[in-house]
Design a protein around this nucleic acid. Sequence first.
RNA 1: GCGCCCGUAGCUCAACAGGAUAGAGCAUCGGAUUUCUAAUCCGAGGGCUGUGGGUUCGAAUCCCACCGGGCGCGCCA
Length: 543
Amino acid sequence: MIRSLIREKIEKSLKDLGKKFDFKVEVPPEQFGDFSTNVALVGAKHFKRPPREVALDLIEMLKGGEFETVELAGPGFINFRISTRLLRNALERVLSEKEKFGKMDLGKGEKIQFEYASANPTGPLTVAHGRQIVIGDTLVNIYKELGYDVQNEVYLNDAGRQIALLAYSLWVRYNELFGIKKDLPEDGYKGEYLIDTARKLKDEVGDKFKGVWDESVEKFFKEYAVSEMLNWMKKTFENLGTRFDRYYSEKSLIEDGTVQKILDLFKEKNLVYEKDRALWFKVSEFIDEDDKVLIRKDGTPTYFMTDIAYHYSKRRRGFERVYDIWGSDHHGHIPRMKAAMKALGFPDDFLTVIIHQFVTLKKKGENLRMSTRAGRFVTLDNLIKEVGKDATRYFFARIDPSKPLEFDMDLAVKHSTDNPVYYVQYAHARICSLFKQAEEKSLRFKEGENLDLLESELERTVMKKLDLFEDTLMEAADSYSPAKLTSYLEDLAHSFHIFYTYNTVVDISNPELSNARLNLAKAVQLVIKKGLGILGVSAPERM
RNA sequence: GCGCCCGUAGCUCAACAGGAUAGAGCAUCGGAUUUCUAAUCCGAGGGCUGUGGGUUCGAAUCCCACCGGGCGCGCCA
């Protein structure tokens, strides 16, 4: 938080000069000092003077106090070197706040929601869902740190045509077990997993449904299939170490009248009309796009319809803002949803959609295309089994959602020990081992003491990284990018590895210095553990 | 055809809402352990940031055009 401290000081100086404008405080390349600001470069316009002159004036106002040096550089940057005492402050905060380090109150308890991993319960979750889960979980955890009251939810598309297809496909598989050959529908679910489900069903009910297909059988098969698929989803979530506060059923929105309620509301506002025996929503009233069907001519609601109802329910449940994480194939859905939110009179910032690009899988140099219906895919379960939970999560978190992600499975397995996740975890394990060493050598660890002995450049660097943890969380939240956190952790781990290489931490001939360094190690350990925890990755004590 | 996203080292990715000499890991080559975990550290090579224009003190980043890739444009979800 030294960064915000510098920002405040600059803002105050500007205020004294009667100015106010945006500027940056950043961490520059090492040779330029601890922190740096472009305030003079940006301010040149406002002051109508050359940047370097503006910088010199500001430097006069800023220097002293906790700033060891404040210098002009390059075209007009102001570089700061911070007193070691101020850096130790960060260390002290980590040591005293412990697991709570990183908690802020920016959200002020505002109730928000993240929705992700929403899926048709018709088959196994894919690696794309895995990416979504990791992005979602991480953002949820970060927003909690920022002081928001966050819930996560998965929307189950358990209504609609695909469920009917699933039910019938299961029925076909079930009958096959009795030697009755039926053809799977052209677009039916051909995956082998339905055969397993059919076997389980046969064990439970015997030949009760053999050869029979009517409305009540269909209903049974729908419910059975969905519940089996849901159980499977839950198991996969567990394998990846995720949990949801709530599963929300699409079907329930039709059954409990929410859909009807929206229709009535839209009718009242004259936002719907009938055409070709279907009911249309006037999207064009709000944005430059074609109107969309809400109710098909057979009387069933479209996905768009139920999704509007779903978001209405979110609002009614008291969420101030909601975030949906969707695959890029759904991006066309965004403008319509925004239009619908407007139609409902919700604030513009109520719904934020975070789009992530697709995951492609490569195995033996070949690209695998994923299709649930064709039954050909590498499941998320397979991936977790092959690569491991930690590496899977870390790998997904590491790449910005806006980038397509190519997962080379052979590489992931073969080089799994080179995965950066081990680099970070190793720093943690090393520190754990330091404390074992200290104990063996009967060095009593006194928390928070001797900290003023920490003053070398390497120690300063580590302390500076510790201080940046909160800034990192804020940046990651602002840009919806878990990758900011992974690069931070790698950075922190790196600074510690260097420090470790050049310094003996546990040295019985110098107990005070040892204690000081153990404190530094302790803080790094806490922050790494916390950061990995936010990512849903474990922090092993030995490796 | 129209719209959205992406294009950075051989590979996978960074670059903090325009900043200083574009950085890491992997891979390649060369170093460092009588001592706390070498899953580590240090060094070398490797780049016309897809191409061409523009905006300005300053562009990988913003604007325009093009090239290449992904996705979307259903009474699918």
